[in-house]
Amino acid sequence: MSHMHRIHWFDQQVRAGTYPNSSHMAEHFEISRRQAQRDLEYMEVSLHAPLLYVAKYRGYCYEDTTYVLPHLYMTEEEKKVLKYLAHRYRQYNYENRESANRIASLLDRFTDPDVREMNHRIPTFDMNPRIIQLIEKLSFAIQESRIMIIMYKDHEREQQLRICPLKLISQYYGDELIATSEHDQEYISFRVDGILYAHVTTERFTREAEQEVKPWNGQVMTRKPFIAKVGFISPLEGDSWHGYRILAQDELVYDIAFYDTDSFLMHLLIAKWNELIAPQWLKHKLQVKCQETLNRLHVVEEDHE
């Protein structure tokens, strides 16, 4: 969707009566004429814009002046709002969490979700433009690992700080930024609505790898997988064994993660492996399954006899 801002510009130019054309667009955005032409084709074909070329002015106007770009198209401002909403819905952890999280996925794709189909009560969030703008800046700084200067107010005082922003967390009551100070690695949590001013510097900081940034409260409890210790004759390649994630390796013994026992048992019956070391309960289940199958085979053999 990166051409949307060009399409927006072109639409504005048409409405302003300047009769823009693909050359104007190419020049303005420093892109090729062919790219600009493709944008215009997109407007006409996909967005059904009634573009009419007026030779006299060597540019375009709308044949139907009542035409409005469809809802799929949105301004930068609207995009920011939806991004913010997606962020809040994604991290929502309350009743009907699944519905809220699904909305996040839909918003992420910028499609028009038919929210009416969801029977559950949907949370709504206040749209504070200042907060949305801040989140935008913070997200950028996190992504680019940029040091930030912030003016932060809590109940004790206002202070200016240099911080390394790491993660944005949405609690049910608002947004939080997890960061470290420039010189030590201890995590600090800031309320986004307590950040009076934020400036993204050009300086970068180094992120500690593999650090799990835990929120203050209610880390969402996620189900942990079972871990099977399986021995093989030769090393496995990649980080998964036929789709089952490999968590650790000690020579030819691998820790394999799985959630669904029945599926994993089926997999053990058909895949190649050398030794099932743990867990004991899984070994037992596999033994029982194999025994049942063997018993059925003996029965069949007896029938034949």
């Binding site: 409890m221 026992t261 867990p279 004991q280 309960w281 289940k285």
Partner: peptide, 28 residues
């Protein structure tokens, strides 16, 4: 329970086999 595998064995009354729940997943 089994400390080695860190699991509980749970009967649900429907199936002959027990369900297995990791200590870490207790209550989830």
């Amino acid at each position: 329970y089994d400390d080695g595998d860190r699991v509980f064995y749970i009967q649900d009354g429907c199936s002959e086999e027990s369900q297995i729940v990791l200590y870490d997943n207790f209550g989830l």
